[in-house]
Design a protein around this nucleic acid. Structure first.
Lengths: 347, 347
DNA sequence: AATCACGTTCAAAGCGCTTTGGATAGTTTC
DNA sequence: GAAACTATCCAAAGCGCTTTGAACGTGATT
């Protein structure tokens, strides 16, 4: 069907060895023949079979991404597409392929084991780590190189990860609100068995504590980060006898819900109630144009994908290097959703 | 490292032939040895190397998805994640892998050619077809099986596709608004070189024409479906001397922007201004809970992924079958965003 | 002139599987 | 009891590459 090494070398009157070497940049080939080979390869659109190459070299030249989904709510992580796009750029530049598996809940461990046993990939990126995430020990066990996007509290052994400094991001955001005079701040957080959500709450409560403000447990919600969740959380908190004057919100999607709740009770975001979100810079959900709609802690998930992929490829290339870590600091972008605390609060 | 056929057959005192046949369900193996083999395979977690198997059989057992992204705006199609999740379920059930490539703009053709030449996949799903999409002829040319998610107007040869009936969906939505008394309806559409957007506009204008309502070109916008685009489009149209009393909007993300614009001018969605969106049932952007926020034409993109993948696997299994097509009808879900046209409109 | 070194090329083995074309032993059939 | 099946198993070839070890000039060295 399509050209293979045998045919190509036949056509050139050379051995497969020489052609292979010419194309893979080995030195023991004269410059003249190398030119001739490369030219012929381009002309016939010859590309080595990924499978044959992989079999011969023992490397898959592929990286696995396992996307979790539960059959109940069928939720797919919204940052997934952008992260993948970023990682894909890195893979493309390095001649790697990206293979995706979807794992339903409990079957997750099996998916990783299968990936390893079938030698389908040279490594994996671990998405959405939970606290004490079991996958880290598992991957260490089965000897599959990996990089975690995020971190997993409670894991003893070192491992490679790339994370946003969620704690400092939410800490700074909280301080920013406190500086504006807000004292009653609602937290609309992700599910707190997710490591990032746990850390964000830590940053929030620590910053409050630093100013001697007590964190009110009734002003902290945690759940799956949908628009609806943002809406109901904010609506309920605003209905409190002593409602918050500001919200710290875990994602832009949630933030849209929070804004809806604020406007539903006739208040104005940025004036009556301040809102800070975390912005993953999702391509299809930009935080406004030149002027951000929401004041936000911002860190591009696509860039994270690029970097995490680079880390992983590096780990694969140098197998016994110690675990590497990258901690990205989020920027605090001031947009239209924050302002001084309303004065009637301090009569 | 991990168990292979040779070792396993050695351990069992059988030939590789017999073990392979036992595991792949061939009849020329006694039931007793089959049991023995299967048990041993499970025990040692033996799984055939995907590469070796592929090389031997000539099939990749993998399907390709090419995700387009432009370096300028880095936009990733928001429905991608859910579609992939659906398709992935089908692949997992059938022992296929999913490989993702990202293609930047112009390099797209090369990506498909490379996929084919390296025999990396047995087929591909074509995403986000444009009008007269060149990929269809290309894939036919290079002989790579494919299924299009959507359709491409202007292509002569038959090809397999799965699409939502965008025309009838937007036609019915328009009629619904007309029945409510709306006569001035704004269209916030996707980019119109995208086939789906083209069809939606057709459904819209035809339904208007059927009632003798002229379509006003100033009330039709088309652009990348972001929240911001929804906002600016609706804001501008509402600023018109003769503003629309209803909007037909191409996506929920756009819809959120439209709602923001409506509320920004002090109007109430569902009362002063009606809105109908198209809802792809994205897991992370649900259209409300039990009661839909937006009245919507609805069709699950995840389900589309499942079905498209099944079509493709079927096409691959029966190479010379004629092209198959599936046209899904969208449901019209009535939510809180629509109501009768305000009476001051017809004094 | 024999030796060595070097640059260039090749034949063949091997990666881990499937599949073809026997072999072997036990069963029927006539 | 010989011939013909049948059920079960196996050795070996082949998929398309990479890589090892060897061979072949050719010019430099002694």
């Amino acid at each position: 069907m399509s050209m293979n090494l045998k045919e190509l070398s036949h056509k050139l009157g050379l051995s497969q060895t020489t052609v292979s070497r010419a194309l893979n940049g080995y030195p023991e080939v004269s410059e003249a023949t190398r030119q001739r080979v490369q030219h012929a390869a381009k002309q016939h659109d010859y590309r080595p079979s990924a499978r044959a190459k992989g079999l011969a070299t023992g490397r898959a030249l592929a990286i696995g991404h396992v996307i979790q989904t539960s059959t109940q709510h069928e939720m797919v992580n919204p940052i997934f597409a952008d992260f993948i796009a970023g990682a894909g750029e890195t893979y493309a530049r390095n001649g790697y392929e990206m293979v995706l598996s979807i794992a339903e809940d409990a079957a997750e461990e099996q998916v990783y084991r299968a990936l390893r046993a079938r030698r389908a990939v040279d490594g994996v990126i671990v998405h959405a780590p939970r606290m004490n995430d079991a996958r880290i020990a598992l991957l260490n066990d089965i000897g599959l190189p990996f990089v975690v996007h995020g971190r997993a509290s409670g894991i003893a052994l070192p491992y490679s990860w790339l994370d946003v400094n969620n704690r400092s991001a939410f800490g700074r955001a909280t301080t920013f609100l406190l500086d504006l005079g807000h004292r009653r701040i609602g937290l609309v957080n992700g599910l707190e068995f997710m490591d990032f959500a746990h850390r964000r709450r830590g940053g929030f409560t620590d910053a409050l504590a630093a100013l001697g403000v007590a964190a009110d447990p009734t002003m902290m919600r945690s759940g799956e980060m949908t628009e609806e969740f943002g809406f109901t959380s904010a609506r309920d908190m605003l209905a409190d006898a002593n409602p918050p004057t500001a919200f710290l919100v875990a994602s832009i999607i949630c933030g849209l819900g929070v804004r809806r709740a604020i406007e539903a009770v006739g208040l104005k975001m940025g004036h009556d109630v301040s809102v800070i979100i975390h912005d993953d810079v999702l391509s299809y959900l930009q935080n406004g144009g030149a002027v951000p709609i929401f004041t936000a802690t911002r860190s591009s998930v696509r860039e994270a994908g690029r970097l995490a992929a680079e880390m992983l490829l590096h780990n694969i290339a140098t197998p016994h290097a110690p675990a590497a870590n990258i901690l990205l600091e989020a920027e605090l972008m001031v947009g239209g959703s924050t302002g001084p605390a309303p004065s009637q609060d301090t009569p």
